[in-house]
Design a protein around this nucleic acid. Structure first.
Lengths: 111, 111
DNA sequence: GTCAAGGTACGACTGATTTCGTACCTGAGT
DNA sequence: ACTCAGGTACGAAATCAGTCGTACCTTGAC
């Protein structure tokens, strides 16, 4: 019931290479731009992103984001919560979330 | 003699996805961190980066960086110059170069 | 207990990316 | 003209990353 937090790397263990590789994928980046744009940093469900991919692939992408240290995944057993590690990311890579947030603006009307 | 500037995308045509994909590779990122850390923005030769890869592969990587809009390549025929498009990158993705520059510090003593 | 929804594990397929071998081009110097 | 160093073009090999099918687990509702 309480939901266990699946662990990612510590703040000072975040590596730019891993983060950039995580953000290189369109689907993962769309998740991150949404998270970065939501200043309330509320926990979100995995399905709230409407990704056009199977759930197995979603599992894969969220894991990559977590292992990159960008998000926390809270496991409720039959459901999962996603939360941006805003403070950690911002302290280690200041300005990165701003770039993603900016992308969210024109991300709704691409090209 | 005058060296023709191989063209990359215009400033407002720069796309975050392409840029991040370009920066996802270790070798390309090492080039970019060096360029970002050098505030003189002087033109550099391709060999001044000491990349541990063949010259064909270097050609490939520099092309990716140029097509992402991160660098200019100046073709002298039998030699090539590399220059960071600092103003363009900074205006389109403010803060990105700072992230790369920060990486250059501990990039010399990895792990 | 049974069932359905949400999620994961594992394996396979596929397409993209990195890498380099071979061959060729260009300009500077001799 | 020849040579050499730096670069490119093309293609092949190898590796990596995204995707999904099948099977299984977990929790909550009935």
């Amino acid at each position: 019931m309480a939901g266990t937090n699946l662990v990612g790397p510590a703040v000072d263990a975040l590596e730019l290479g891993v983060v950039l590789r995580a953000l290189a994928d369109e689907h993962r980046r769309s998740v991150m731009t949404e998270l970065a744009a939501d200043r309330t940093d509320s926990e979100r469900g995995c399905n709230s992103f409407a990704l056009p991919i199977s759930k197995q692939t979603q599992t894969h992408h969220f894991r990559v984001l977590r292992e990159a240290g960008l998000i926390d995944e809270i496991d409720y057993g039959n459901r999962k919560g996603i939360r941006l590690r805003r403070a950690d990311v911002e302290s280690r890579f200041p300005g990165l979330l701003a770039l993603l947030e900016a992308e969210h603006q024109d991300g709704t009307a691409p090209r």
